[in-house]
Design a protein around this nucleic acid. Structure first.
Length: 669
DNA sequence: TCAATCCGTATC
DNA sequence: ATACGGATTGAC
């Protein structure tokens, strides 16, 4: 045989093998598989039907993973359904391979993910990447360990401190799907209260999801839950687990072996069976905003999921976010909060050291620029052998422009966006719509001049320590965060969000540089400052036990007064009203579009926006550009549909790069 | 008149 | 991405 004919024979054999493999028959029952493909293209974000070959009949299951051919190349996908019919007019291709017969994508989560993708103008594939962890074949072969049964109903316990608390638990027990915004009383009881709610749903035979912003909060809930129902009644899901363990626990949930999940933001998608309750703790923390496309916030996902599935929803905080206030104002959720007398009994006494406060005479305290009130309260606590917490702002907040007279945030007269001085320009311009703001007056005091607020001048722990000689100093922040400190005389210096819990509570909590948190160049600065103040102040002992909080800030600022009166509800309503007045979320729906100038221009020219839409910009945004589109909340869905359609048209034409679309971004400056 | 090539569009 | 169809172009 010559070399040439040998080659021909080989090619012939290969072709024969191939064609023999092609002689396939469809499965005799439900031969059509509807598949959601893992492709990044926006215009391909829909289902495709494939034929199930007979030999894959048992392994192509709804919720399982397959590999199929799409226009010549092999792509991964999830089977959404098996059926008899297809709507597709043309010929169906066969499923190429059944990757896994493990039904990891439950119908409920698939529908939720579709809903979330639509609301965020994103693709189902992107949401599924957030919702379903990567497969681990070895783990899939293991059996899941069934959870311990929880049959003992929980005692309402400290929930009875809230007038509507017991009725909420009762409604959860009945499976009535109540929705509540819960303002937790200060102190360390909230994890135990979360555990009671979880136990209530579990004892009623329902599934539960608890989501918290970070590993520290998850750990607190974990230990309270372990005490209430035992560690084998639930799983903890967080990113730090590693792929195998993460998938193992995920499978325990998707197989129904475990009914309760505690975790960070991705846990809101956990395929818990017969979901009866979703709890979201501290939803104002921006770790709950997903940083990957399509940027859903765990709060929005939780709201949508509870709404779709009829599960109960509990949004718990020490303060209250404007979004929660909006849910209450619309009547969608009801409030769980203690009456004034109970709040007064649990809260510490909050005192304000104003801007012009007298600085302590003590030389060391003077060096640390400690107001004398703060210094005295700390001294008293230390004398009583109690720890003192000092909250100091982090370095490196974005410098904001503020009114020289009253320190109010400088806002654009046209769209209320933040003003900034571009390098080399003497006139401030709006970062959102780009308009120069040469001749403006401050809306709060009428002042005409602006200045950059130098924030983040962090006082060092050593500096503060010198004001209290002989007292042990502990620091918590950055990459070394303490979760707890023992009772006893100590000075604990922490950055916001990194405050350790003190056993028995702090004798005094000093919130230094309050105005620095308030004047951050972020639209959520006020909300965020309040959340961090309430969180730190909640670690103090109650007023009756001598707990004192000193905040160094202007005493006539509304948020400062809200803290002093321990009235997070009033602060949230005030903030929501303010956002409505200037047109910020959650009073409106705002889409942030970022991309190169040509891409943005093209998208904005293509998109068929709702009539009510207002376009701000594009304006420079780092190396690229940014535009904002805002609509009344009633038109949110129309805006998302319009942006999705425009993105789809662009991706179908292969016109330029995609434009990033984020709705109501958590960090807005 | 026919084939090679280009462009736009769908992808099951 | 790649494949396909229809239109366009260029050589005979």
């Amino acid at each position: 045989m010559s070399e040439g004919t040998e080659q021909l024979a080989l090619v012939g054999a290969a072709r024969q093998r191939k064609s023999r493999a092609r002689v396939r028959a469809p499965a005799s029952s439900r031969p059509v598989a509807t598949v959601a493909l893992d492709v990044p293209l926006s215009h391909l974000d829909r289902c495709f039907d494939y034929l199930v070959p007979a030999h894959l009949d048992d392994t192509v299951v709804p919720g399982g993973r397959v590999r199929v051919r799409l226009s010549g190349r092999l792509v991964d996908g999830f089977v959404l359904a098996r059926g008899e019919e297809t709507e597709h007019e043309g010929k169906l291709a066969y499923v190429d391979r059944a990757v896994s017969a493990e039904p990891v994508l439950t119908p409920e989560v698939a529908a939720l993910a579709r809903d979330v993708a639509d609301r965020q103008a994103g693709t189902l594939a992107d949401v599924l990447r957030l919702a379903v962890p990567p497969r681990h074949a070895a783990v899939e072969r293991e059996a899941s360990t069934p959870a311990a049964d929880v049959s003992a109903p929980a005692d309402a316990g400290s929930w009875s401190r809230y007038p509507t608390g017991p009725s909420f638990l009762d409604a959860v027990h009945r499976g009535a799907g109540p929705r509540a915004v819960w303002t937790a009383l200060p102190g360390a009881t909230w994890p135990a209260e979360v555990a009671v709610a979880v136990q209530t749903a579990l004892a009623a035979g329902r599934g539960v999801i608890v989501v918290a912003p970070d590993a520290r909060d998850v750990a607190q809930i974990d230990s309270a839950l372990a005490a209430a129902v035992g560690t084998s009644a639930y799983v903890v899901l967080q990113a730090e687990l590693g792929p195998a363990e993460r998938y193992r626990r995920f499978l325990a949930v998707s197989r129904g072996a475990v009914r309760a999940v505690v975790g960070t933001r991705a846990a809101v998608f956990a395929p818990v069976h017969d979901l009866g309750l979703v709890i979201l703790w501290d939803s104002g923390d921006d770790s709950l905003a997903e940083p990957r496309a399509p940027y859903p916030h765990a709060r929005d996902v939780a709201v949508v999921r509870a709404h779709r599935s009829g599960a109960a929803l509990l949004l718990g905080d020490l303060a209250r976010t404007p979004e929660e206030q909006a849910l209450l104002a619309s009547g969608w959720a009801h409030a769980i909060e203690a009456d004034r007398a109970t709040v007064r009994a649990c809260a510490p006494r909050v005192e304000v050291a104003g801007d012009d406060a007298e600085v302590a005479r003590d030389p060391a305290a003077r060096t640390a620029r400690l107001p004398s009130l703060a210094w005295r309260r700390a001294k008293d606590a230390l004398a009583a052998e109690l720890p003192v917490l000092v909250q100091v702002p982090r370095r490196g907040y974005l410098p904001a422009l503020a009114c020289t007279q009253c320190r109010a945030r400088a806002a654009c007269p046209h769209c209320a966006g933040p003003l900034a001085l571009a390098s080399g320009h003497a006139i401030a311009a709006c970062r959102w719509c780009g308009r120069p703001a040469g001749d403006r007056t401050c809306t709060s005091c009428g002042g005409r001049s602006l200045r950059a607020v130098a924030v983040g001048a962090m006082r060092t722990a050593e500096e503060l320590g010198r004001a209290f000689p002989g007292v042990p100093v502990r620091t918590s922040g950055g990459d070394k965060v303490l979760s707890a400190v023992p009772a006893g005389r100590a000075l604990v210096v922490a950055t916001p969000g990194a405050e350790p819990v003190a056993s028995g509570g702090y004798g005094a909590v000093l919130l230094l540089d309050g105005w620095a948190l308030l004047t951050r160049a972020d639209l959520r600065a006020t909300e965020d400052a309040l959340r961090r103040w309430f969180a730190a102040a909640s670690l103090a002992r109650s007023a009756g036990d001598g707990g004192r909080v000193v905040i160094v800030a202007s005493s006539d600022a509304v948020p400062v007064q809200a803290l002093a009166r321990w009235a997070p509800q009033r602060a949230a309503q005030w903030e929501l009203d303010d956002r409505a007045a200037v047109g910020f979320p959650p009073a409106v729906r705002l889409a942030e579009l970022t991309g190169t100038a040509p891409d943005l221009t093209d998208l904005l020219a293509t998109v068929q926006l709702p009539r009510t839409a207002e376009v701000l910009g594009p304006a420079p945004f780092g190396d690229i550009e940014r535009a904002m589109v805002r609509v009344p909340r009633a038109d949110s869905a129309d805006l998302a549909v319009a942006l999705k359609a425009a993105q789809g048209a662009r991706s179908a034409r292969h016109d330029g790069a995609a434009v990033r679309v984020r709705f109501d971004p958590a960090d807005l400056a």
